[in-house]
Amino acid sequence: MRFKEKVIEKLLLVTALSAIGVLALIIIFIFKEGSPIMVKVGIPHFILGEKWSPSKGIFGILPMIVGSIWVTVGALVVGLPLGLGCAIFLAEMAPARAGMVLKPAVELLAGIPSVVYGFIGLVVLVPFIRNVLGGPGFSVLASAIVLGIMILPTITSISFDALKAVPKAYRDGMLALGATRWQTIRMVLLPAAKPGIVAAVILGMGRAIGETMAVIMVAGNATIIPTSILAPVRTLTSNIALEMGYAAGDHRQALFATGVILFVIIAILNLLARWVAAGRVSE
């Protein structure tokens, strides 16, 4: 009996370590496959090179790094006001019952596959931008809007929880002083919920920068640094997905190296999120 218990405990421990094991495997394999080409090209040249021309053996991913930053910032510009506004309304203004029904509805947005978002962007948004604002339609703007909508559930849901976690006494105290609801939200609730909201923003950024399929379909994917929001753009993720199908040799390694850069950016964002979350605990 005791032997059996010991065996079970060890089995559970080993199983529980599989997540960290997979994480380690991912890091090892991606870095092992991606780093030789970076060394060969030279890391500064790889990161800061403005030309991506695999057939000529030229691997510079600066356009994709800039592209990822553009669309991610754009996604926040679209998604943050909308998501935060939605969270504030559902948490503080809507009747409790409406909040209980509508929050899951917003979270349902997260369940829609990313290809479907991309597809809607492709058939609705891209033609709209082309016809109304000009340009090819496939653009930073289209990517930012699609990604902005995709990160809405993340931002809404986490901000909602952060607002709900503010002690009720804060709210009641302000309202008792004769403050309006908006004054209460602006002066007390938002400052109190700030760490949670910042965490929501960082997680939303992580989702936006890591998104692949939706962006591919609306971004245009040109390997040049975009000069306007109506210009086409290629992100790090798209770069990988677009060319993995046929890449070989150095080219393939360069795609894995693109993955390494993406991985590092995500890791920094994760650390940032953890740091913010830790700050929330200690406060």
Binding site: L23, L25, I26, F29, I30, G206, I209, G210, E211, T212, T237, I240, A241, M244, L255, F256, G259, L262, F263, I266, L269, N270, A273
Partner: peptide
Amino acid sequence: GIPSIIFGLF
């Protein structure tokens, strides 16, 4: 936190 494309690569 890892994007799905990285899982795909891995």
